[in-house]
């Protein structure tokens, strides 16, 4: 199945105005109809939680109502429709997409992907010995920047049965497990991308069923830091980060949000193909990140001006 990755996440929210402001401040572009888009056209759609066009709410307080996957072509869409209709309802929506549910009860949509192919440089670093560096006289960082999220990267779900979730995504939709945390769950990528993961499952009690976080890819670690700092300056509260994960190697910074889950910035995730053998690690802080930092206000070790009395 040539599924590329998530095109949209659809939320049914409590406070539309706060979410609009938050998603815009995060760096997504308002594109009408409460769609907030990254540079490649993937993004977040918000609706009032009682909007009748939304799939039914879960019994848990999660505001996530649907994950819409982008697929390569119409033939893939038809193959998914055929596959899923063998044991569950598959709806055809007016926009040409199809809608069904996974084995956990999360609503899924599939559509011929709307994402555009980006042609943008990644953050380039200079290092002795490297043949790929910034051009001479190119500056690496600006004091003020408003980094733009490039593409919807991944979503993490709390699920009561990760083995069942993994089996559904592997056997029915062709996802591949790239790594796993023992007893917690797998990182998975659909066949149409080399990204380390577009989804990760975390085993929890059933009353937690929902979205832990989702994230967009940035140009590199500098953009993750800059975008995160902009969020802190705007008064948003960090949940975890900045830091760098081990599985996937992605840089991260998570923020709490009015969407009832965390929203992350990520960058520089590993890419894998079918040659890759999944690793397994024990869950916990030590395997969860290579390093973790904590934001503090700008400061400099300059000390008082020469001749001034120490305070």
């Amino acid at each position: 199945m040539n599924i590329i990755g998530p095109d949209f996440l659809v939320f049914g929210v409590d406070d539309m105005e706060s979410c609009r402001q938050y998603l815009t401040d995060y760096g997504l572009k308002a594109a009408g109809d409460d769609r907030f888009l990254a540079l490649d056209g993937t993004g977040v759609i918000i609706k009032p939680k009682d909007d009748p066009s939304l799939p039914a709410a879960l019994e848990t307080p999660t505001m996530l109502r649907k994950t819409v996957y982008g697929v390569a072509d119409q033939a893939t869409l038809e193959a998914i429709a055929t596959e899923l209709s063998s044991d569950r309802e598959v709806k055809r929506l007016a926009d040409g997409s199809i809608e069904s549910v996974d084995d956990m009860g999360f609503a899924l949509g599939f559509q011929v992907t709307v994402r555009t192919t980006l042609s943008l440089p990644a953050e380039i670093v200079n290092a002795p010995g490297s043949s790929h560096q910034r051009a001479v006289n190119d500056i690496g960082v600006q004091k003020v920047a408003a980094p733009e999220p490039r593409s919807l990267s991944h979503i993490v779900y709390f699920v009561p049965d990760f083995a069942r979730a993994e089996a559904f995504y592997a056997e029915r939709l062709g996802f591949i497990t790239t790594d796993r945390f023992t007893g917690v769950g797998p990182f998975m990528r659909p066949a149409g991308t080399t990204d380390h993961h577009t989804v990760f499952f975390i085993q929890t009690p059933p009353h937690m069923l929902g979205c832990e976080h989702f994230t967009f890819h940035m140009a590199g670690p500098t953009e993750v830091m800059h975008a995160g700092r902009n969020m802190v300056e705007k008064g948003y509260q960090s949940f975890w980060g900045p830091g760098r994960h081990l599985f996937g190697s992605n840089w991260f910074w998570y923020f709490k949000s009015p969407l009832g889950c965390n929203m992350e910035y990520d960058a520089d995730m590993d890419l894998h193909d079918d040659q890759w053998t999944a690793r397994e690690g024990a869950p916990g802080a030590d395997n969860s990140q290579a390093f973790l930092f904590k934001y503090t206000e700008k400061w400099s070790p300059m000390g008082p001006p020469p001749g001034a009395k120490p305070q």
């Binding site: 409590d14 706060s18 848990t60 307080p61 709390f158 832990e212 509260q237 949000s257």
Partner: peptide
Amino acid sequence: DAGGKDIICSAHGA
């Protein structure tokens, strides 16, 4: 929450 009915944790919606 928006209606002032409950205290909420914004990390995972408790």
